[in-house]
């Protein structure tokens, strides 16, 4: 099974990298972008076929390591 964990900054947390990317897009003349927030994507290969077990393991992984829950949120997606 394949899974994806997406980690994003919580709202209200200042994101200097996102701001810099936003500025660069403006200077490139890319129109219509109001704001940019940078995050991370983890593509994970799951051993076994138990979806509930996979979700539990991914939640454990995100809480323990992939995300710093002081400043980041995460979303888990398991694709059959």
């Amino acid at each position: 099974m394949k899974a994806r964990v997406t980690v994003t900054l919580k709202t209200g947390i200042l994101d200097p990298q996102g701001k810099a990317i936003e500025g660069a897009l403006k200077s490139l003349g890319v129109d219509g972008i109001a704001s940019v927030r940078q995050g991370k994507v983890f593509d994970i290969e799951i051993a076994g076929a138990d979806k509930a077990k996979a979700e539990a393991a991914l939640k454990d992984a995100a809480d323990k390591l992939l995300a710093n829950t002081v400043i980041e949120n995460y979303a888990i997606e398991v694709r059959g």
Partner: peptide, 16 residues
């Protein structure tokens, strides 16, 4: 901070 021994987090320097 990452180990939870201190609160908070160290982010990218404001001026990058």
């Amino acid at each position: 901070c990452e180990s939870g021994l201190l609160p908070g987090v160290l982010m990218r320097n404001a001026r990058l």
